[in-house]
Design a protein around this nucleic acid. Structure first.
Lengths: 190, 190
DNA sequence: GGCGGATAGTTAGCCGCCTAACGATAAAAG
DNA sequence: CTTTTATCGTTAGGCGGCTAACTATCCGCC
């Protein structure tokens, strides 16, 4: 997981102090923001350390899950392949990155890569039996780790949490381009 | 920002459905978890896209901030250098990574790197005037972006948010080793 | 003073992410 | 039918993260 701004979270009082020097700094916003970055980081680590034991990175896991989900979605026991572009779309990385991930997964015998039957520009990526078995081995503990991390939260807290997180996601989805923000179009929008 | 499990967040009903097949899957925990991962990702993107305009990566920004914070902390106008190990500790990456980051920052004229006066094993990394000016130029918009993302949340929501995030962080900090979790020591602890 | 263990920063190699560019292919336009 | 535009997966190169190993240095102990 890449670097966060700084490892130790500043106390609110420090942010308040800093806001005197930087008028653009909203102390409570910064506090939430930094806690969010940090928590996301930690959440990632909790599951990633388990995946690593299976020689699976989060990136590879995403590809495997997308393929596996596609089998389930198809409601069929037979594999339903995806193209690299579809994998890229579902996993949120570029097609170029998918090439590398599929390279290593193919080498490990977890996926197949064959020319697409309908379009010669495309490849067809499918989950092997070994890939499916690897996933089946990983998923129980994967889900347990998620549950473990969230255990201190009771159901109502979880609902609140999701609601707040969704507000952030909605806001982020409305992200105008950076240049617009800097030129003050944002204040006109607000 | 690296890959999340899958780009599109599953609806709660899907998680409920999946929990029938996977007894280890706690639907509400998974929902919060995935929302958290995703929100952390988006928060990262909001500030990172701005930094990129200044040719600064999040990693570099962290180093600069640590150096700048050290100046401030020292309450002195003169620069107060840090060692690579101190930078690594404050920014949460390895010393090896710091070497690379400092390499590029030094090339850009934003930091100085000199032998340490007291210990010949160490280097001394300091912020240049140019580095400080670059930071001063970046920080207003950086803080504005944080504030922008959190704007939909009112003060009480922010306090709740920080409380919930802190619970997660506390839990993550109590993370026993992975092997212990898998062997069931966790259930004995709970 | 000498030895052993610890620490520091760097290097090499790997991985995963990106962008830009490319050749091959498909689709659209005229 | 031909030309132009769009799409695909891959490649090359860069960056930032990691681990392991290395040489140089420091420190504690005998």
């Amino acid at each position: 997981m890449p670097l966060l701004m700084l490892k130790d979270l500043p106390r609110y009082e420090c942010l308040l102090e800093a806001s005197r020097e930087f008028p653009d700094l909203d102390p409570s916003a910064a506090e939430v923001f930094l806690h969010l970055l940090r928590s996301g980081d930690e959440a990632f680590r909790v599951v990633e350390s388990h995946l690593a034991q299976h020689d699976i990175s989060q990136g590879r896991f995403g590809v495997l899950m997308a393929l596996w989900g596609n089998c389930q979605r198809a409601g069929s026991a037979t594999e339903k392949p995806l193209t690299p572009a579809e994998l890229a779309e579902r996993t949120g990385v570029t097609r170029a990155t998918i090439t590398g991930l599929v390279d290593t997964l193919e080498t490990a015998g977890l996926v197949t890569r064959t020319p697409h039957p309908d379009d010669r520009r495309m490849m067809s990526i499918g989950l092997t039996k070994r890939g499916a078995k690897t996933l089946a081995r990983i998923m129980p503990e994967h889900f347990r780790r998620m549950a473990w991390l969230m255990e201190p939260l009771r159901e109502p807290e979880r609902k609140t949490f999701v609601r707040l997180l969704t507000k952030v996601l909605t806001r982020a989805a409305g992200d105008p381009s950076a240049s617009k923000r800097e030129t003050g179009v944002l204040s006109a929008r607000s």
